[in-house]
Design a binder for these strands. Structure first.
Length: 252
DNA sequence: GTTGAGCGTT
Protein backbone atom coordinates (compact mmCIF):
# COMPACT_ATOMS: atom_id res chain seq x y z
CA UNK A 1 0.00 0.00 0.00
CA UNK A 2 1.06 3.50 0.54
CA UNK A 3 0.88 3.69 -3.15
CA UNK A 4 -0.82 6.33 -5.18
CA UNK A 5 -3.64 4.10 -6.14
CA UNK A 6 -2.16 0.80 -7.01
CA UNK A 7 -1.29 -2.13 -4.87
CA UNK A 8 2.12 -3.59 -4.57
CA UNK A 9 5.19 -2.48 -6.42
CA UNK A 10 4.14 -0.28 -9.33
CA UNK A 11 7.07 -0.58 -11.66
CA UNK A 12 10.30 -1.45 -10.06
CA UNK A 13 11.85 -2.41 -13.35
CA UNK A 14 13.39 0.98 -13.80
CA UNK A 15 13.14 2.65 -10.49
CA UNK A 16 15.68 3.41 -7.85
CA UNK A 17 14.77 2.82 -4.26
CA UNK A 18 15.98 5.03 -1.49
CA UNK A 19 15.94 4.00 2.09
CA UNK A 20 14.81 6.73 4.44
CA UNK A 21 15.72 6.09 8.03
CA UNK A 22 15.21 7.96 11.25
CA UNK A 23 11.82 9.22 10.30
CA UNK A 24 9.21 9.69 12.93
CA UNK A 25 6.57 7.07 13.52
CA UNK A 26 4.01 9.63 12.63
CA UNK A 27 5.48 10.42 9.28
CA UNK A 28 3.42 9.12 6.42
CA UNK A 29 4.23 8.35 2.84
CA UNK A 30 2.27 11.33 1.69
CA UNK A 31 4.41 13.51 3.89
CA UNK A 32 7.60 12.26 2.35
CA UNK A 33 6.36 12.39 -1.19
CA UNK A 34 6.32 16.17 -1.59
CA UNK A 35 9.62 16.35 0.16
CA UNK A 36 11.34 13.89 -2.13
CA UNK A 37 9.42 14.85 -5.20
CA UNK A 38 11.11 18.22 -5.07
CA UNK A 39 14.39 16.69 -6.15
CA UNK A 40 13.14 14.30 -8.76
CA UNK A 41 10.38 12.17 -10.10
CA UNK A 42 9.14 10.01 -7.26
CA UNK A 43 7.47 6.92 -8.58
CA UNK A 44 6.37 5.50 -5.28
CA UNK A 45 6.77 6.01 -1.59
CA UNK A 46 6.37 3.04 0.65
CA UNK A 47 6.56 2.88 4.41
CA UNK A 48 6.71 -0.57 5.99
CA UNK A 49 4.20 -0.91 8.73
CA UNK A 50 3.76 -3.26 11.58
CA UNK A 51 1.67 -6.35 10.96
CA UNK A 52 -0.19 -5.98 14.19
CA UNK A 53 -0.60 -2.35 14.94
CA UNK A 54 -0.04 -1.06 11.46
CA UNK A 55 2.12 1.79 12.64
CA UNK A 56 5.13 2.93 10.74
CA UNK A 57 8.31 1.13 11.54
CA UNK A 58 10.32 4.26 11.39
CA UNK A 59 11.69 4.07 7.89
CA UNK A 60 10.42 4.45 4.38
CA UNK A 61 11.32 3.60 0.82
CA UNK A 62 11.21 6.21 -1.85
CA UNK A 63 11.42 5.17 -5.46
CA UNK A 64 12.88 7.52 -7.95
CA UNK A 65 12.58 7.30 -11.67
CA UNK A 66 16.18 8.16 -12.26
CA UNK A 67 19.28 7.43 -10.27
CA UNK A 68 20.58 10.93 -10.76
CA UNK A 69 17.59 12.43 -9.05
CA UNK A 70 17.77 9.79 -6.39
CA UNK A 71 21.39 10.54 -5.76
CA UNK A 72 20.61 14.20 -5.56
CA UNK A 73 17.83 13.54 -3.11
CA UNK A 74 20.21 11.53 -1.00
CA UNK A 75 22.62 14.38 -0.78
CA UNK A 76 19.93 16.96 -0.26
CA UNK A 77 17.53 15.15 2.00
CA UNK A 78 20.05 13.16 3.91
CA UNK A 79 20.20 14.69 7.36
CA UNK A 80 17.19 16.85 6.69
CA UNK A 81 15.02 17.53 9.68
CA UNK A 82 11.59 16.02 9.22
CA UNK A 83 8.95 16.23 11.90
CA UNK A 84 11.65 17.11 14.36
CA UNK A 85 14.00 14.29 13.50
CA UNK A 86 16.90 14.09 11.13
CA UNK A 87 16.15 11.57 8.46
CA UNK A 88 18.81 9.50 6.79
CA UNK A 89 18.46 8.96 3.08
CA UNK A 90 20.51 6.35 1.33
CA UNK A 91 20.20 3.88 -1.49
CA UNK A 92 18.42 0.69 -0.62
CA UNK A 93 20.90 -2.11 -0.36
CA UNK A 94 18.37 -4.90 -0.46
CA UNK A 95 15.48 -5.22 -2.83
CA UNK A 96 11.91 -6.09 -1.79
CA UNK A 97 12.57 -9.71 -2.58
CA UNK A 98 15.73 -9.65 -0.55
CA UNK A 99 17.60 -9.27 -3.80
CA UNK A 100 20.63 -7.17 -4.18
CA UNK A 101 20.33 -3.72 -5.50
CA UNK A 102 22.78 -1.50 -7.21
CA UNK A 103 22.34 2.13 -6.39
CA UNK A 104 18.84 1.39 -5.32
CA UNK A 105 18.10 -0.35 -8.56
CA UNK A 106 16.93 -3.88 -8.19
CA UNK A 107 19.17 -6.43 -9.81
CA UNK A 108 16.65 -8.47 -11.75
CA UNK A 109 19.04 -11.32 -12.35
CA UNK A 110 21.02 -12.47 -9.42
CA UNK A 111 24.63 -13.23 -10.28
CA UNK A 112 25.12 -16.88 -11.05
CA UNK A 113 26.37 -18.17 -7.73
CA UNK A 114 25.87 -21.63 -9.15
CA UNK A 115 28.88 -21.38 -11.39
CA UNK A 116 31.65 -22.31 -9.07
CA UNK A 117 34.62 -22.13 -11.38
CA UNK A 118 33.27 -19.21 -13.30
CA UNK A 119 34.91 -16.55 -11.25
CA UNK A 120 38.51 -16.64 -10.34
CA UNK A 121 37.72 -15.40 -6.88
CA UNK A 122 36.88 -18.33 -4.63
CA UNK A 123 34.85 -16.13 -2.32
CA UNK A 124 32.29 -13.57 -3.38
CA UNK A 125 32.90 -10.11 -2.07
CA UNK A 126 29.29 -9.89 -1.00
CA UNK A 127 30.38 -11.59 2.15
CA UNK A 128 30.81 -8.19 3.68
CA UNK A 129 27.18 -7.44 3.08
CA UNK A 130 26.05 -10.55 4.88
CA UNK A 131 28.39 -9.85 7.69
CA UNK A 132 26.96 -6.38 7.93
CA UNK A 133 23.45 -7.74 8.13
CA UNK A 134 24.38 -10.15 10.86
CA UNK A 135 26.17 -7.45 12.73
CA UNK A 136 23.13 -5.27 12.71
CA UNK A 137 20.98 -8.08 13.90
CA UNK A 138 22.96 -8.27 17.05
CA UNK A 139 22.09 -4.78 18.07
CA UNK A 140 18.41 -4.80 17.52
CA UNK A 141 16.16 -2.55 19.38
CA UNK A 142 13.15 -3.64 21.28
CA UNK A 143 11.00 -1.99 18.67
CA UNK A 144 12.14 -4.52 16.18
CA UNK A 145 12.36 -7.11 18.85
CA UNK A 146 8.66 -7.10 19.38
CA UNK A 147 8.08 -7.22 15.70
CA UNK A 148 10.26 -10.21 15.16
CA UNK A 149 8.91 -11.91 18.21
CA UNK A 150 5.52 -11.89 16.61
CA UNK A 151 6.97 -13.23 13.45
CA UNK A 152 8.65 -16.13 15.13
CA UNK A 153 5.99 -16.62 17.79
CA UNK A 154 8.58 -17.48 20.43
CA UNK A 155 8.78 -20.81 18.75
CA UNK A 156 12.35 -21.27 19.73
CA UNK A 157 11.74 -20.53 23.37
CA UNK A 158 8.75 -22.79 23.41
CA UNK A 159 10.79 -25.58 21.91
CA UNK A 160 13.53 -25.30 24.47
CA UNK A 161 11.11 -24.96 27.31
CA UNK A 162 9.10 -27.86 26.03
CA UNK A 163 12.00 -30.08 26.80
CA UNK A 164 12.04 -28.67 30.27
CA UNK A 165 9.26 -28.76 32.80
CA UNK A 166 8.52 -25.14 32.23
CA UNK A 167 5.76 -24.18 29.88
CA UNK A 168 5.43 -20.48 30.23
CA UNK A 169 7.70 -17.73 31.57
CA UNK A 170 5.15 -16.68 34.15
CA UNK A 171 4.13 -20.19 34.74
CA UNK A 172 7.72 -21.24 35.04
CA UNK A 173 8.29 -18.96 37.98
CA UNK A 174 5.16 -20.06 39.73
CA UNK A 175 5.77 -23.66 38.90
CA UNK A 176 9.33 -23.72 40.12
CA UNK A 177 8.33 -21.99 43.31
CA UNK A 178 5.34 -24.21 43.89
CA UNK A 179 7.27 -27.30 43.12
CA UNK A 180 9.95 -26.64 45.65
CA UNK A 181 7.45 -25.36 48.12
CA UNK A 182 5.18 -28.33 47.77
CA UNK A 183 8.03 -30.75 47.68
CA UNK A 184 9.64 -29.40 50.80
CA UNK A 185 6.60 -28.22 52.68
CA UNK A 186 4.49 -31.28 52.35
CA UNK A 187 6.63 -33.76 50.47
CA UNK A 188 3.65 -35.93 51.04
CA UNK A 189 0.23 -36.51 49.57
CA UNK A 190 -0.40 -32.79 49.47
CA UNK A 191 1.10 -32.93 46.07
CA UNK A 192 -2.08 -34.52 44.83
CA UNK A 193 -4.06 -31.47 45.79
CA UNK A 194 -1.66 -29.21 43.98
CA UNK A 195 -1.54 -31.29 40.89
CA UNK A 196 -5.12 -30.72 39.73
CA UNK A 197 -4.74 -27.07 40.54
CA UNK A 198 -1.93 -26.76 38.08
CA UNK A 199 -3.69 -28.62 35.35
CA UNK A 200 -6.62 -26.35 35.86
CA UNK A 201 -4.37 -23.44 35.22
CA UNK A 202 -3.24 -24.63 31.84
CA UNK A 203 -6.47 -26.42 31.22
CA UNK A 204 -7.94 -23.14 30.04
CA UNK A 205 -6.52 -23.65 26.62
CA UNK A 206 -6.52 -27.07 25.16
CA UNK A 207 -2.98 -26.95 24.00
CA UNK A 208 -0.39 -29.67 23.64
CA UNK A 209 1.39 -28.22 26.62
CA UNK A 210 -0.73 -30.32 28.88
CA UNK A 211 0.81 -33.31 27.22
CA UNK A 212 3.95 -33.20 29.36
CA UNK A 213 1.72 -32.85 32.37
CA UNK A 214 -0.30 -35.85 31.42
CA UNK A 215 2.87 -37.65 30.72
CA UNK A 216 4.17 -36.61 34.09
CA UNK A 217 0.97 -37.66 35.79
CA UNK A 218 0.95 -40.99 34.07
CA UNK A 219 4.60 -41.32 34.80
CA UNK A 220 3.88 -40.99 38.48
CA UNK A 221 1.25 -43.62 38.26
CA UNK A 222 3.19 -45.84 36.00
CA UNK A 223 6.40 -45.11 37.80
CA UNK A 224 6.34 -46.85 41.13
CA UNK A 225 8.36 -44.09 42.66
CA UNK A 226 5.61 -41.59 42.20
CA UNK A 227 3.24 -43.13 44.68
CA UNK A 228 4.76 -42.83 48.06
CA UNK A 229 7.36 -40.34 46.92
CA UNK A 230 5.47 -37.63 45.10
CA UNK A 231 8.46 -35.40 44.64
CA UNK A 232 10.56 -36.70 41.82
CA UNK A 233 13.21 -34.33 43.07
CA UNK A 234 15.06 -36.58 45.41
CA UNK A 235 15.56 -34.98 48.79
CA UNK A 236 18.86 -35.15 50.61
CA UNK A 237 17.14 -37.07 53.33
CA UNK A 238 14.62 -38.65 51.03
CA UNK A 239 16.35 -41.94 50.99
CA UNK A 240 12.99 -43.61 51.06
CA UNK A 241 13.04 -43.25 47.37
CA UNK A 242 15.21 -46.31 47.26
CA UNK A 243 12.35 -48.44 48.48
CA UNK A 244 10.21 -47.91 45.52
CA UNK A 245 7.07 -50.01 45.72
CA UNK A 246 6.80 -49.74 49.45
CA UNK A 247 3.09 -49.46 49.59
CA UNK A 248 0.32 -48.19 47.31
CA UNK A 249 -0.64 -45.69 49.93
CA UNK A 250 -3.64 -44.64 47.96
CA UNK A 251 -4.84 -41.34 49.25
CA UNK A 252 -8.47 -41.77 49.69
C1' DG B 1 -0.26 7.77 24.83
C1' DT B 2 5.55 4.54 24.45
C1' DT B 3 9.89 2.90 21.08
C1' DG B 4 14.71 4.49 17.51
C1' DA B 5 18.55 0.41 14.69
C1' DG B 6 17.42 -0.91 10.42
C1' DC B 7 16.07 -2.69 4.49
C1' DG B 8 10.01 -3.11 1.68
C1' DT B 9 4.14 -4.00 0.35
C1' DT B 10 -1.29 -6.73 -2.46
Amino acid sequence: MSHFGRSGPPDIRDTYSLLVLNITFRTKADDLYPLFDRYGKVVDVFIPRDRRTGDSRGFAFVRYKYADEAQKAVDRLDGRNVDGRNIMVQFAKYGPNAERTHKGRIMEAVPRSRGRSRSRSPRPRYRDDYRDRNYRRHSRSRSRGRYERNRHYDRERYYHRSKSYSFSPDYDRDYGRSRLDDARRSRSRSFASASPARRSYSSRSSSPRRTPLSRDASLDEHGSRGKSSPSRSVSPEGRQDDSRSTSPCSSG
